[in-house]
Amino acid sequence: MKIKICGMKYEENIQEVAELQPDYMGFIFYEKSPRYFKGYIPTLPKTTQKVGVFVDAYLDDVLDKVRRYNLQYVQLHGNETPAFCKAFKQTDAKVIKVFPVDDDFTFDTIKPYETVCDYFLFDTKGKYHGGNGATFNWHILNGYPSEKPFFLSGGIGLDEIPSIQKLNLPIHAIDVNSKFEIEPGIKNVADCERLTDLLKH
């Protein structure tokens, strides 16, 4: 199971976490987020993919960030249409489309995106576009109708890992953020290392 550490913000902390060689590191380009990124991304290990996180951004703005930061993935957290997602087929960037989940969630939501996204991401529906710090009922995903691997997000900390490992689901990666922070944008490197040990060894 791969690891995505999201909400990176400060260069020194990025470098410290990068030494653990997570599979993905996420940078949030959403100005209303306390983890809004507008800094410098140092050189990352070749095995670590850069993910830009956007919420209902203009296509030109997203493409500009993809070029400027050499992003390998765009993660779309808003109400982006299938046509918007399809626009990235003209680039080298892959698309992760986020779907907020609560007890009323239905998989009908994902069907229009099946052919235009590379991955889905399921996150807890809450007040914010991610970073709500709460899990959702993962058993809702037992009815997952697609063969497309997905990212699992939403309030995942070290305590949740054993339960996730027992799920019989096509989880491509877990996406962690707020439960691994000292404060918004600063990750606890020791906790990130423990996460890596749990999932990689």
Rank of each mutant, 00 (worst) to 15 (best):
T106G: 03
S163T: 15
E16P: 01
D102T: 09
T106L: 04
K179V: 15
Y73N: 03
G143W: 04
F54H: 02
N142A: 12
G39C: 07
K187R: 12
K97R: 12
I14R: 01
E12T: 11
H129A: 12
D175Q: 11
K38C: 11
I110K: 10
V101I: 09
A87R: 14
E193Q: 14
I156L: 14
T196S: 11
K38Q: 14
L169Y: 15
Q21M: 13
L76M: 09
Y128F: 12
I41W: 09
H201N: 13
K50M: 03
L63S: 03
T47K: 11
F37V: 06
R35P: 06
P45R: 11
L141F: 09
T47V: 11
G133F: 04
A190M: 11
G126M: 08
F88C: 02
E183D: 13
E160F: 11
Y24P: 01
P82L: 05
V176R: 13
G155P: 06
D123S: 05
G7K: 10
V95E: 06
L169S: 15
P34L: 06
A87C: 14
T43D: 10
D60S: 08
K148N: 04
K200A: 06
G7F: 11
T91W: 05
R68P: 00
M1H: 08
K125H: 09
E181Y: 14
H201S: 13
K38R: 12
N168M: 15
S146F: 15
L167I: 06
G157R: 10
L121V: 01
N70P: 00
I28E: 07
N137K: 12
V189S: 05
K97T: 05
F84Q: 04
